[in-house]
């Protein structure tokens, strides 16, 4: 057995994050840590230590690997066009979420206390927020960001079960983005 490190328990953070967001949506803002830290590590350190060591979601998926069929994923799932395509799709969805936050901030749109799963299904999530606690746009961003995090976890769990544990990692937008940064820094080919 390999020696356990503190960072081998970061899957607890992922569970904590989703639990906190179930009670108070404003905790969804903490998800920015998972968004910015990998980027900083890639930009400053030029490595994927986040994916390799600290990614709580990856660890959680690994834990859920017991329910995996352990089948090889189709080749296209780790192909460049799918990975970059999914990254573009994910970032545009992120951009659209930011735009909706802006609309709420500008007063052009009102705050809806729901989350949207898989970019399609609106789920009521109103018990996690009392109107007026913070500015509407702050709450809007929290609902949006939580939706994004939960959506990617759902997709992750589906491919985890169908294919191998951590099959999500083969097309995770954060992974693709950080690998891109590392490849640019190391002057490796991107395609």
């Amino acid at each position: 057995m390999k020696k356990k490190h503190w960072y081998d328990y970061l899957w607890l953070w992922t569970i904590l994050y989703f639990s906190l967001g179930f009670f108070n949506i404003l905790f969804a803002w903490l998800g920015l840590i998972d968004f910015l830290v990998p980027l900083f590590i890639a930009i400053i350190g030029g490595n994927k230590a986040f994916c390799n060591r600290y990614c709580g979601r990856g660890q959680l998926l690994e834990k859920c690997g017991k329910c995996s069929r352990n089948h090889a994923a189709p080749k296209w799932m780790a192909s460049k066009w799918f990975r970059y395509g999914f990254l573009v799709f994910f970032l545009s969805m992120f951009g659209s979420m930011l735009f909706q936050t802006y609309l709420v901030a500008a007063g052009a749109s009102s705050l809806r206390e729901t989350i949207k799963l898989l970019w399609l299904f609106r789920v009521p999530w109103g018990w996690t927020y009392t109107a007026g606690t913070v500015a509407d746009w702050i709450a809007k961003f929290a609902f949006g960001f939580y939706s994004l995090m939960l959506t990617s976890t759902i997709i992750g769990l589906v491919v985890n079960t169908l294919f191998k544990p951590r099959a999500w990692c083969s097309f995770c937008p954060m992974g693709t983005m950080t690998q891109m940064i590392c490849k640019i820094k190391a002057k490796e080919r991107l395609w």
Binding site: K48, C51, N52, R53, A78, S79, P165, R166, F171, C182
Partner: peptide
């Protein structure tokens, strides 16, 4: 094809 996720390093004994 490698996505540099690091699953292999964890597995390797």
């Amino acid at each position: 094809v490698c996505v540099a996720c690091g699953v292999c390093l964890k597995t390797c004994t």
